[in-house]
Design a protein around this nucleic acid. Structure first.
Lengths: 335, 335
DNA sequence: ATGAAAGCGCTAACAT
DNA sequence: ATGTTAGCGCTTTCAT
């Protein structure tokens, strides 16, 4: 056998002196193969190290026994989610494949539509979409969204209480005495980002503190964009005394930027994040942030999806998990 | 169009009143299509939301532009590695898919051979194998191994200095005054596990401290196996005063077990781990551990793989990165 | 410029 | 019990 070329079912058939159909039957434990032939074919399979091509099988079968998770990028939030999803998938018998859009900004919008279409009907029997950027997905297999796009999508969804979380964060800042509070917003197309901004505005309004619009800057859930916005904010004539960042990645970027500008955190600038990714606790100073139970979200999304894939009815098609404030070292009263 | 069925190239062809061949040419920017037809076909593609099936394409093309990362399971080590790999992949133009064997113990051995065979020649153009359990992989595309199987495999490899790291860990324990030091070993089939155990033995020998073999127990890099082993160790008549766990997951399980037995860490039991996953620093007490640059390993593995895929020669086929001790709160002098 | 047809690796009717 | 054949969705000669 050529080491450089794939072993196909035909190689096995030829070597065993049978037809490909027979080999296929052996592989799939179908009836109609003599014990003798079966043994011979199995021996050849072992000898050649043959494995059926997943691609060919799924093209033919429209059924693969694998669940796909589509993430915009591999970063702390999505990897935490993956851990939870992996836990849930372990006992289901499904296999797991993760597709990453690779964070490429070019096709930031609609990446999951492209992916889904490309995999649809083949390769995965169902999918979890993490922070999808479109609402209408045509897909013939079950799909569950995590932290979905803004606007009403028919998709079953798992998210967390973003509005309340954001309020908690801002109220914390207000209660410390901050008044000049900036916000780094998130990915505009995501519901979570909208709600976090709304929570910010509501908390400010409730406290009777007007929002200075120059202090609301785009962070895009992205470290680079956030660092730029933070730099802008901190170079203002009257800079903010506190920043609420729409996620931890943005918050960490903000802390770094403040540092590079010679500011101390939290003495000169308080920073609150959102997500409670592991990196937030490891930051120095440890980040005050809003916890959302990311792993649980991953687990729930898979459980929902599996129910759907099994054709079961699901009671709740929209699960919203609780958020809560975790006070650590990146916030204190303004000087 | 039926919402429940995939849009294929034939649907597009029919709707546009052309042949599938023409549609294919449009998709792939081939010559021989009039501007007029091209426009019409494109319009239909947009209207129908058509995307070529990845599966059909790769079956046909034997070329997919995607890199596969095969991991035994989605857990802290592999997700850190993924973060590094994702960084490296971003500017290469390749897409990334991660396959997880799902930690199923049934096919623990040889899972990557199966996966690789199933994907081989199709679906991925190259792959990174993380902690593979077999050495001989027949694959017609480039493959790079991270933290490989024991024994000489021809595969290009990325790992870290496990021997030195283990020695550092044990020397730390010895220098604190510990003599009755236990070890929880790792996944027997992995080189890293062997080297970590060897480092343990060498450090003990150098210090003239004999190894009590009842104190060397299997941890398998697994929390459940490790917890059981720790329980056994700590129920001994003369239990160890310190444990060197072959990885952080084992170390954390050990700390939990000690706790549940009413022991304090580090006062009653010192514990050292290996890997320096984020979870180790978040543990209480924060874990003293050996750092290996996991993200860098992921990045390097991808860089190596991409060179291979481009047909470039690579200078070093075996990269070993440095390890070093990180002293935190889970170790102190014995009472 | 366009289309008919073969074939990638596999499975499921349908012969024999 | 075994083999022949069609076809999954796509690309690519090769005709026309």
């Amino acid at each position: 056998m050529q080491p450089s070329s794939r072993v196909t079912i035909r190689d096995v058939a030829a070597r065993a002196g049978v037809s490909v159909a027979t080999v296929s039957k052996v592989i799939n434990d179908r009836y109609g193969v003599s014990a003798d032939t079966m043994a011979r074919v199995r021996a050849v399979i072992a000898e050649l190290g043959y494995e059926a091509s997943l691609v060919a099988q799924s093209l033919r079968n429209h059924k693969t026994n694998v669940i796909g998770i589509l993430v915009a990028d591999i970063e702390p939030f999505s990897t935490e989610l993956l851990k939870g999803a992996a836990d849930a998938i372990r006992d289901t018998g499904y296999e797991l494949v993760v597709y990453s859009a690779g964070g490429r900004t070019g096709d930031k919008l609609g990446w999951e539509r492209r992916y889904l279409s490309r995999l649809s009907g083949t390769l995965v029997d169902g999918a979890v979409l993490v922070t999808p950027s479109v609402l209408d997905v045509r897909f013939d297999a079950p799909v569950v969204a995590v932290d979905p796009h803004t606007g009403p999508s028919g998709l079953p969804t798992v998210d967390s209480d973003n509005l309340r979380g954001a309020r908690l964060a801002v109220e914390h800042l207000l209660s410390l005495g901050h008044r000049r509070i900036a916000m780094l917003t998130g990915r505009e197309d995501l519901q979570s980002a909208r709600l976090r901004e709304r929570g910010f505005r509501e908390a400010m309004a409730d406290a009777g503190v007007p929002v200075d619009e120059t202090l609301v800057q785009p962070g895009d859930y992205d470290p680079v964009v956030s660092a730029a916005a933070a730099r802008l904010l901190l170079s203002l004539e009257t800079p903010p005394s506190a920043v609420f960042a729409a996620n931890d990645v943005s918050a960490i970027a903000t802390v770094e930027t403040a540092r590079s500008l010679g500011l101390r955190v939290p003495e000169d600038l308080s920073v609150v994040g959102f997500d409670n990714i592991p990196e937030s606790a490891l930051n120095s100073p440890p980040l005050t942030t809003v916890d959302q139970p990311i792993k649980v979200m991953g687990r729930q999304a898979i459980e929902m999806l599996v129910q759907l894939m099994r054709g079961e009815e699901i009671e709740k098609t929209h699960l919203t998990l609780d958020t809560h404030l975790v006070v650590r070292g990146s916030t204190c009263a303004p000087r």
